[in-house]
Design a protein around this nucleic acid. Structure first.
Length: 587
RNA sequence: GGUCCCGUGGUGCAGCGGCCUAGCAUACGUCCCUGUCAAGGACGAGAUCGCCGGUUCGAAUCCGGUCGGGACCGCCA
């Protein structure tokens, strides 16, 4: 090695040792005949010093050095003179007296600061990723991610799980997200797809008797990237044979509790994690990924308006629900604030948002005149409102639509009114999801994943009232983010085909698209189940960043462009010819 | 496909019809300086204000378009 020590490890016990360091010039402080060089590597920063009268040659080299030059410094560790100790630096009690210094490589002036944590345009950071990655704050993300993934590997290995890699070139399936596809050379005109998840493969591994499997798996989705979504995500994928639902949840919970406590920023709120049924979280929070860092529950006021003359609530009362939200002390909310919240409610399907302020003169609202005295009194009583409070109401013929619309407003208010208590990780399991959801066209689609088993008690409902049947699905939700989910799977072909049929996929089509799995279920498939979690989102949670691109080493823009590699790019026409592909001009 | 925000020396920001010959901080260059650690001091270089077009006597500033980035909706589990 070109170094004997790193820049982060020297301290008083090393005094008078001869050491060699190699790293980047973090900062140079030139006092004329005395020059300080802060040399930085992944491990830390060490101050090196050279004095012209003692070492003219080294002093001359040190004068030529600039920020981000790569240098090798050989010298003797010395305790710093009294009064010059830097308490901000782990190595601040010592310095290296430079005997020899070599410039291993020069550097252009970097396009942005490495030695301070200023905000820099993200495009520039992506283009110069190698510079950005040098910043200690960036390296922290990479380190946490590494430690987290290593921990997961150790955790599952220690519990008998084998890490199995699954093929990355699989069959495209038109459902779900848009596939990334790869042309085949031997089969011109046919394509592989990159996996959106190893779901079918891991189930097949269970049929193969692997018993316990995990993988840190790359998954690909060609949908527009967002602050918390990227083309290539990584997931922890786990599957086990012969488990009950609690066994899988317990192991996922143990893994994540351990990870949050080791690498996270704050303690875990409650152990064991609370579990909530889908219907209950929808009812109370208007979301299937409730943010429990603040309370602000939705209140059902359907009964208050049983006999109402207010037409906008009629459908909600008759078929769905009327949901309310009490916001303390916000009776004087601005028109603009109401407009913003109304927009949010409509985005989630709400027809509108009724607001009522409790003022000294009574209820202040554009629609208060439609409410009877009894309705007004009962509303105030039910939500527990007092003078100066604001009540928000959404009614809808679909109870879940009313809840979702108001739930969106609730999430908005959490940040807007600074209600969030971010001192613990609020982990919760959401269970008992419906098997099927209504499509806008009135048909059925799977609520989560078509392979999730159906609760034994609800199997009969598939024939009579499919929408009421609940699945063995469970979701891991932390601080209002869906981190992952899983289920006990269907392990018999007949039930799997029945689910597909309900979703409008006939037997023949299912056999074509999911043939391998369906066939496997006929050859002694054991009962099995598992879960998957997003590694990238988990690292966001651990580090507290709101930007998923912070959690990966190499990032792309919102259009999927890679400024570092200048990709995507044209390919050699000869390659297209081999693949029998022709590119059409852009629209 | 859509909505919103942003684009000014290397970087981060200010300026938002004439006082701009575009300001500040920092980085950069030269010189001075033996105890600094965001070192200090002096001097200096560096920008046709993303691009195209329009309005105007006059545009960084107003308008339209376009490109790029970001946040969001759609999409996505």
């Amino acid at each position: 090695m070109l170094r004997s020590k790193t820049c982060g490890e020297l301290n008083k016990t090393d005094v008078s040792a001869t050491v060699t360091l190699a790293g980047w010039v973090h900062r140079r402080r030139d006092h004329g005949s005395l020059i300080f060089l802060d040399v930085r590597d992944r491990y830390g920063i060490t101050q090196c010093v050279v004095n012209a009268t003692e070492n003219e040659r080294a002093h001359r080299t040190a004068s030529d050095v600039r920020n981000e030059f790569v240098v090798q410094v050989k010298g003797i560790v010395r305790e710093r003179p009294s009064g010059t100790v830097n308490k901000n630096l782990p190595t601040g009690e010592i310095e290296v007296v430079i005997g020899e210094i070599a410039i291993l490589n020069e550097s252009k002036t970097p396009p942005f600061y490495v030695n301070e944590d200023s905000e820099v345009d993200e495009l520039l950071r992506m283009k110069f990723r190698y510079v950005d990655l040098r910043r200690p704050s960036r390296q922290r993300f990479i380190e946490v991610r590494h430690e987290f993934v290593k921990y997961l590997r150790d955790f599952f290995s220690a519990r008998g799980f084998w890490e199995v890699e699954t093929t990355q070139l699989i069959r495209s399936d038109p459902t779900g997200a848009r596939d990334f596809i790869v042309p085949s050379r031997y089969f011109p005109g046919k394509f592989w797809a990159l996996p959106q998840s190893p779901q079918q493969l891991k189930q097949i591994l269970m049929v193969g008797g692997i018993d316990r499997y995990f993988q840190i798996a790359r998954i690909f989705r060609d949908e527009d990237p967002r602050a918390d979504r990227i083309y290539e995500a990584t997931q922890l994928d786990v599957e086990m044979s012969f488990p009950e639902r609690d066994d899988v949840m317990a192991i996922g919970e143990e893994a994540y509790t351990g990870a949050l406590e080791r690498f996270g920023r704050k303690p875990v709120w409650r152990k064991p994690w609370p579990r909530m049924k889908y219907d209950d979280v929808m009812d109370r929070y208007g979301s299937d990924r409730p943010d429990l860092r603040f309370d602000l529950p939705l209140v059902d006021v359907t009964d208050t308006f049983r006999g109402t003359k207010f037409q906008a609530f009629r459908a909600g009362v008759d078929a769905g629900a009327v949901k309310a939200l009490l916001i303390k002390g916000q009776a004087d909310v601005s028109r603009k604030g109401i407009d913003v919240m109304t927009e949010l409610a409509k985005r989630r399907g709400g027809k509108g948002l009724v607001h009522i302020g409790l003022t000294a003169e009574g209820l202040r609202s554009p629609v208060a005149k439609f409410f009877s005295d009894d309705e007004q009194k009962d509303l105030v009583r039910r939500v527990g409102a007092s003078l100066g409070d604001l009540i928000l109401i959404v009614a809808d013929a679909q109870a879940h639509t009313a809840a979702r619309a108001l739930g969106e407003v609730r999430d908005h208010l959490g940040t807007q009114l600074d209600l969030i208590d971010d001192t613990t990780y609020r982990c919760v399991w959401v269970t008992d999801f419906p098997v099927l959801d209504r499509t806008p066209e009135g048909g059925w689609t799977f609520a989560h994943n078509p392979f999730s088993g159906v609760l034994e008690s609800d199997v009969h409902l598939l024939d009579t009232d499919p929408g009421a049947a609940r699945s063995k699905q469970y979701d891991m939700v932390i601080d209002g983010r869906e981190i992952g989910g899983g289920s006990i799977r269907i392990h018999k072909r007949a039930l799997q085909e029945k689910i597909f049929a309900l979703m409008g996929t006939p037997k023949e089509e299912a056999a074509q698209r999911f043939g391998a799995l369906l066939d496997a279920l006929e050859y002694g498939a054991p009962p099995h189940g598992g879960f998957a979690t997003g590694i990238d989102r988990s690292v966001m949670l651990l580090t507290g960043t709101a930007n998923i691109r912070d959690t990966i080493a190499f990032a792309k823009t919102q259009t999927g462009y890679d400024p570092l590699l200048d990709a995507p790019a044209d390919v050699d026409p000869a390659l297209l010819e081999q693949l029998r592909l022709r590119v059409l001009p852009p629209k």
